[in-house]
């Protein structure tokens, strides 16, 4: 177990270094922050001063090593836009994204898995057809479109829910459900197909031969087997939620990390972009590790040694 963990840690470090390097260079290729800071009237000297202050006059590789060195010591730098430590800027946004993401994730798992099981158990029926339609629609509509339609219907026309911003539970409903549609549909589809495959397995037939009640067969045996691919996919979907959050938070002006990232990219706030991406990378890597651990718990054939 320990050696497995260490191996994964080594891989994770390499991945993170790679990711930060790419983001570091890509952000600098996208344009020059200095011009947008100093304004159109600035002269060359002012521009050079600003550049030196920000440390942007040095070669990119040197900047990168300084950055990595600082990060290793826990210093993530200061936001160019907000003039505050990056950690503070990010920290105040994270809770919003966590709230939104976890709600959406929870909703997509509960709905996806239960509808998936329902569809599998009523294979070929009207219910199955309806559920599969939901899945196709959910996977084919883009987030921004669902979001805008939802605002139009529930906020503008019906006035049941606020259009945007964060606040009470009512603010959370639309962004969370919008964000949940895609993963819900994906989880639903894989649950259905995995459950169908499991219900056709020889060992399920043998459970029937033994005279076990159908509910035991479905909930004790089939579900546990069927969940293995569902868990793998859910891990991926939780990662994808972060991508979706960028769009959904923008549509609903939700003050989360996604929103911050968009803002920072527009204003070329390099330190925030770099650390935001770094955080996302660390999150995704931990997520993968967690999924592997869950596999080990569910499936006795997998043990990490």
């Amino acid at each position: 177990m320990l050696s497995f963990f260490l191996r994964r840690l080594k891989l994770a470090l390499i991945t993170i270094l790679g990711v930060t390097l790419i983001v570091f260079v890509a952000a600098r290729l996208s344009g020059d922050v200095v011009y947008s800071l100093v304004g159109d009237a600035a002269n060359t000297e002012e521009i050079d001063t600003m550049r030196r202050q920000l440390g942007l006059d040095r070669p990119v590789w040197m900047q990168y090593f300084t950055y990595v060195g600082n990060v290793a010591q826990g210093d993530f730098g200061r936001s160019i836009r907000y003039q505050r430590p990056v950690t503070d800027v990010i920290a105040e946004r994270v809770p919003f994204t966590v709230q939104l993401g976890l709600t959406a994730f929870f909703v997509s798992i509960v709905l996806g898995v239960s509808l998936g099981i329902l569809a599998a158990r009523t294979r070929g029926s009207f219910v199955d057809g309806a559920v599969r339609t939901i899945a196709v629609v959910g996977q084919s509509m883009p987030h921004f479109w669902i979001g805008m339609m939802a605002i139009l219907v529930f906020a503008v026309t019906l006035r049941w829910l606020p259009t945007s911003g964060a606040g009470g539970l009512s603010h959370l409903v639309m962004p969370a459900l919008t964000l949940a549609t895609f993963p819900m549909a994906a989880i639903l589809r894989i649950t259905r197909s995995s459950m169908l495959e499991t219900l056709d397995a020889e060992y399920v037939k043998f459970l029937r031969v033994k005279g076990l009640a159908e509910r035991l067969i479905v909930w004790k045996h089939a579900l546990r087997n069927a969940l293995i691919p569902v868990i793998a996919l859910s891990g991926i979907q939780l990662g994808n939620l972060l991508g979706g959050a960028v769009i959904v938070e923008t549509v609903f002006s939700w003050p989360g990390l996604g929103n911050l990232m968009v803002e920072s990219i527009v204003s070329r706030d390099y330190p925030v972009i770099q650390s935001g991406v770094l955080m996302i990378a660390v999150f995704l890597i931990s997520l993968n590790f967690l999924v592997d651990l869950i596999f080990g718990l569910i499936d006795p054939r997998i043990r990490y040694g």
């Binding site: 020889e202 043998f206 033994k210 005279g211 009640a213 569910i298 499936d299 006795p300």
Partner: peptide
Amino acid sequence: RRIRGRHIAMILQDPMVSLDPLF
């Protein structure tokens, strides 16, 4: 269901895949 497994039992073709791998 009360007859299956109790009065009439069956062994399927391939014992290697007749048992739930997770139990």
